[in-house]
Amino acid sequence: MYKLLVLPFLILLNFACTAETQQKVEHKVEIVPEIVTGAEQTDQYLPYLKDKKVGVLVNQTSMIKEQHLVDSLVALGVDIQMIFAPEHGFRGKEDAGAHVKDAIDPSTGIKIYSIYGKNKRPSPTLLEQVDIVIFDIQDVGCRFYTYISSMHYMMEACAEAGKEMLVLDRPNPNGMHIDGPVLDPKFKSFVGMHKIPILHGLTVGELAQMINGEQWLRNKTNCDLKIIPVKNYDHSMPYSLPIKPSPNLPNDQSILLYPSLCFFEATPVSIGRGTAFPFQVIGYPNSKLGVFEFTPKATPGAASNPVLKDQLCFGEDLRAVAEGGLQLSYLIDWNRKFKTAEGKSVISKNKWMDLLCGTDQVRLALAKGETESEIKVAWKEGLDTYKLKRKKYLLYKD
């Protein structure tokens, strides 16, 4: 009797195990190929550098895994004549807006030339010493992030000097968002040089193509441009930056909030410079403005003299906020609260606000008390036109 009962049980167990195995096969997890940056594809661009004198526009993000691009190319025998340093410097240790000085790279002995400060582009005389310039810097996809302005000026200098430019492309961590007013040329500046929205949805390689294609360079010149695209990437993909792109964007959360909180640079309010969580908090020395407390401190290399230094600020902690894109709600809410608590608008630097926005429309709408949806309606037509234009220059699908 025992044997008769066991046999059917074993048959059923075998059937169940077989079915479970089949189910596991059917629901096998798809392996997503690893994103490979342009810089990592040395076999693709070394032929362009053969027997050429090379200049590089790079910073601390210009890495091939654990090795800096400059060190890698020198080891491969590439003749690097000079390094060009953007905002924050070659190693990314300078404060935002701080003057970047010429220097010598102690690791390689190569001369470093600053292109942030008085001279934003190399002189024709300097470029006579090279045949090609490499651009390899991690961007965060915002019009007012100045690395793309440095790229523009380098493209312009190369075009006018008859030099090639090689862009080693990298993903855009905000590449899934396209939002904000398209720049009004009246508000063109180093924090906004192109007729693109605040969140432009392009990699630096795609933007370089647009700059050429739309003839945005001085005298409508064209740069002799070569791009090494990113492998296994599209704009819908999240991308966690392996190295912080600048001292005050230390993590994914700061990069997520940067497009929305940068407007507070035109206010007396702190957004966390001088703390361990820059671009992740909002605060001011008035307890009516929130319950979260923090005190900005001098932080060498990130904020030597931060807004509201050594003052206890009250506000809100945004480190757990999940919503990215361009949110005007923070600015609108703080403008309302600031008027109640301090008796005035939160915007204290009108010109700077307009340069960050690329228009005066946002500031004027804020003064009228317009809602976020009302403000965004005003830039919809320009944004729709930009989205159509953008399609011509895409290297990756959305």
Rank of each mutant, 00 (worst) to 15 (best):
V182H: 10
A16W: 05
L308T: 00
L7Q: 07
R363Q: 15
Q81A: 08
I83K: 06
C17R: 11
L326C: 12
V29F: 06
E381V: 15
L356I: 15
M155I: 01
M155P: 08
G272W: 06
L4T: 11
R121F: 01
V130D: 05
V191Y: 04
L256G: 04
L126D: 02
P86R: 11
N119W: 07
K93H: 07
V182R: 15
V130K: 10
C158H: 05
L366E: 07
G97T: 15
A378V: 14
A98W: 09
E372K: 09
K380M: 13
V204Q: 09
G89R: 12
P245Y: 06
S189E: 08
I148H: 00
G325H: 02
G325R: 04
F187Q: 06
G192S: 07
T146I: 10
E381F: 02
P250C: 07
G325D: 13
Q253A: 08
L366V: 13
M154A: 00
T61L: 09
L168M: 04
G369F: 13
L5H: 02
G180E: 09
Y113K: 12
V58H: 02
A85G: 07
G162T: 11
G141K: 00
I228S: 02
A98N: 09
T221M: 05
Q215M: 08
V167K: 03
G175P: 03
P171G: 05
K391Q: 14
T371Q: 05
Q22D: 06
S123T: 15
P124D: 01
A39P: 03
A208L: 13
D95T: 15
L183E: 02
L331M: 12
A96E: 13
G213L: 10
R218F: 09
L127Y: 00
L57N: 05
R143V: 14
G290E: 01
E323H: 12
A302Q: 15
M193E: 09
I198K: 08
I83F: 05
D139K: 01
D398Q: 10
L10T: 10
G55H: 00
K387S: 07
K392C: 12
L355A: 14
K118T: 15
N350I: 04
H235M: 15
A103W: 13
T21D: 03
L168P: 08
G324S: 14
P197F: 07
V78C: 11
L217D: 01
R91K: 12
G274N: 08
G89N: 10
Y113E: 08
S270M: 03
K186M: 08
D136V: 12
D398T: 03
Q67M: 03
A320W: 09
H235F: 08
L183N: 04
M63S: 03
S123V: 11
Y396R: 04
N251P: 05
E214F: 10
N172T: 01
K220C: 01
G290L: 03
T267F: 07
E323F: 02
P181F: 05
A157W: 02
S240D: 02
K231E: 15
K288P: 06
T385I: 11
L356C: 08
L364W: 02
P296D: 07
E40Y: 00
Q81M: 13
Y284G: 10
D179W: 02
T42G: 06
V78T: 14
M63H: 04
F90M: 15
K53F: 00
I115P: 00
I64Y: 11
S62F: 09
N174S: 06
N219S: 10
I282A: 11
S189N: 09
H194V: 10
